[in-house]
Write a protein that binds this DNA or RNA. Sequence first.
DNA 1: TAGATTGTTAATCGATTAACAATC
DNA 2: TAGATTGTTAATCGATTAACAATC
Lengths: 221, 221
Amino acid sequence: MKASSRVRNLPTPSVQRLPVYLRFLKEARRRGDDVVSCTRIAEEFGQRSVQVRKDLAITGVSGRPKVGYRVDELIEAIESFLGWDVKTTAFLVGVGNLGRALLNYEGFVEHGLDVAAAFDANPALFGQEINGRVVRPLDQIASTAARLREEGRIVEMGIVTVPARAAQPVADKLVGIGVRAIWNYAPVRLDLPNDVVYEEVKLSASFAVLTNRLRRRDADE
Amino acid sequence: MKASSRVRNLPTPSVQRLPVYLRFLKEARRRGDDVVSCTRIAEEFGQRSVQVRKDLAITGVSGRPKVGYRVDELIEAIESFLGWDVKTTAFLVGVGNLGRALLNYEGFVEHGLDVAAAFDANPALFGQEINGRVVRPLDQIASTAARLREEGRIVEMGIVTVPARAAQPVADKLVGIGVRAIWNYAPVRLDLPNDVVYEEVKLSASFAVLTNRLRRRDADE
DNA sequence: TAGATTGTTAATCGATTAACAATC
DNA sequence: TAGATTGTTAATCGATTAACAATC
């Protein structure tokens, strides 16, 4: 159990369920609840309580038998585990409808996400302001990052909301300014250095599951 | 092996990967390729060829040893398996930025999705046209569905892009007009009858995985 | 105390991968 | 034919669930 380089193997499904619990816990806090049991959480989401307990365990919190978990402690533990308690500065590239939707979504603030600037290739959009952010030309990515760096703000994440064709070159540019994470909404797999963490939002995967089930249900009748 | 009610247990991860292959296969067809091997597909996406073979097998196609799979046959098999070869008529509710993004996304046509109408609660949007669809008041869901039904168009799917609070009542309305599938973008789990298929797009799950990995990487250095 | 709840070990289930025979 | 590739069975891996002891 080395001090630093110990890479625990975290079950991805557990990490993915944490935001759901977090949302519920914040509601509970608003209602004034002090403690909550995993039985209660499980019930809310139609899961087994063991699963909730295992999921929560990865954050390091512990509850008290017979009592449950302290709501505020749990919220803090999940936020810290997910890195949502610290600000993450990001650039968003691609100000189409999807990019615009993300820029306008206020919920990300709760997750520590700070989209510092937005970029696009279309000159018609340059200078346009969206939710407080001015759209800049693509080729100002590096200079804007440099300017922010002088203010002590490091751009750690790139959000890619351009069409499939443009995604790889855009990602390369973002990697060029030193981002350490890419969140990709374009329907292509991006080739990135190993030390850049990568997540892809696969809308068509979700749609595929939905339509496949719908058609199989049809066939069953 | 009963004729109809045989519910095969399909691995969801396999279903989710099919759209990725489909996209690649369509590119291959555009290039004029006649056949493709799963070795080639696996290489493209950094997977094992066995996995690709297993994934393709669920669609029912078979390839030929030494040769590979016929590209057009494979495309047809995947599309049919996913139900993307038939038109699915849908209503979209919630014309915020996200709803707008989906209405403007042309790619869905390739998946057989036909968004027949869009609805919102905000009167300021009524009558506004988005990519050929007029925004209607929420309370016209039932009457619009009835009108379409007279034309022989059955609304089978509801796409929910309203804020979390509004999602459940909207879903209930959609279920009320007889949709058999709900595609939910709101960050809440919807309670639905068992015979309605349900898929949720969990952006925060994806974001959670990304930021958690980013922070753990930081900690490792 | 009795009962509810946590934390953990063992069993089960499902998906991925390895191994290999069949085949064009 | 030899080599590449498919299709399938068996082994492995990882996540979920069951079982139960510990505890407030």
